[in-house]
Structures are given as C-alpha cells and as structure tokens.
C-alpha cells in the first residue's frame, strides 16, 4: 500500500524537487543526491503521510532544507546557474529568433539577480505551479509575504522586458 502510494504521489515529484535543488546547489549530481535524501526521509516517515497538509509542499520544504544544509557545509557562495540550452522555433525568422533568445537571456539574468526569496517564490509559482499556501509553507512565509515577493519579482522582470523592448525599437 505504501509502496504504491509512494510511486503514484511522491515519486512523480522528483523533477520538481530536482529543479528546486539544482537552483540552490548548481550541481546536477548534488541536486540528485539531495532529492534522494529527501525521498528517503519521506519514505521513512510514511506513517505520518496522512497528517501532512500537502505532500508536495512537505517534500519541497525538505528539499530546501537539505540544500541549505549542503550549502552551509560547502560554505561557498552560490554561483550563477549554468545556462540551459535554449530552444528556438525553427519556423521563425532567424533575426527574430535571435532577439527572442536575447530577451530570454535578459529574463534569466534578471531572475538570477532577484533577491533569493523572490526567485524562490517565482520558481515555485511559475515553474512548479504551487499555490500561495504551499509556497508559504515551503518558504516559511505568510501569504502576504508570498504575494509581495511574487509581485516584486514579476514587476522586476516586466521592467527588464519593457526596457529591452524599448532598446530594440531604438535600433
């Protein structure tokens, strides 16, 4: 019973947890190790599963804590994330594709320069589809703090997009 529940409800979270761990650790192997640690911890506490409000939020919180512990052990500053390869639509004009890539690059750069809490709120919301309540649980914030961080993060990105767009129109 527990095995099936684990496979159906917890194991599929692995990629979400991995992405969040990678955001903190910037190292694929270490991120996988962190997720494995989390999964092992969650499995060991399977008797408590029914008491958890949100299993995804619990797992994500455990991932964050595991990563923060690892970073403390490393005692190094987090480096900017290695740039992921970008995929452009083959049907579009090469120049247009180039400018799109530049825009995505600017957005990524902007994200990396945001304060950590804003980055984390945006990641959990935009990439992992977490509710405000779940984000609040994972990041140990109030709902208002979640909303404020999301508002500020999104608007910082919006400014970047607007600024970049204005520069292209001038050229």
């Amino acid at each position: 019973m527990h095995v099936e529940a684990f496979k159906q409800h917890i194991l599929p979270l692995k990629d979400k947890l991995f992405r969040f761990a990678l955001h903190f650790l910037q190292n694929v192997q270490e991120a996988e190790d962190a997720v494995q640690d989390v999964m092992a911890g969650v499995w060991a506490r399977r008797a408590e599963w029914p008491q958890w409000n949100s299993i995804p939020a619990y797992c994500m919180t455990a991932t964050r804590n595991n990563c923060l512990d690892r970073l403390r052990r490393r005692r190094i500053r987090v480096l900017p994330m290695e740039k992921a390869s970008q995929v452009g639509s083959p049907d579009r004009d090469p120049h247009e594709t180039m400018t799109d890539k530049q825009m995505i690059q600017r957005i990524r750069q902007c994200m990396e320069e945001l304060p950590p809490h804003q980055q984390q709120v945006i990641r959990l919301r935009e990439m992992e589809g977490f509710s405000y309540n779940e984000i609040a649980e994972v990041l140990d914030m109030t709902l208002d703090q979640v909303k404020v961080n999301l508002f500020r993060g999104r608007n910082a990105i919006r400014k970047t997009i607007t600024k970049e767009e204005a520069q292209w129109k001038k050229q």
Binding site: A31, E32, V35, A84, D100, M111, I161, E164, E165
Partner: peptide
C-alpha cells in the same frame, strides 16, 4: 510578443529534469 518570451523562459526551465 515580448511577454511570450517570459513564458517561453518558464517553459524552458520546466524542461530541466534529473538524469
């Protein structure tokens, strides 16, 4: 269109998976 790049960026990030 410029805001499309924002969602394209989120989409790219969602493609990152473990090995």
């Amino acid at each position: 269109q410029p805001y499309g790049d924002l969602f394209a960026y989120f989409g790219e990030e969602q493609q990152v998976t473990a090995g």
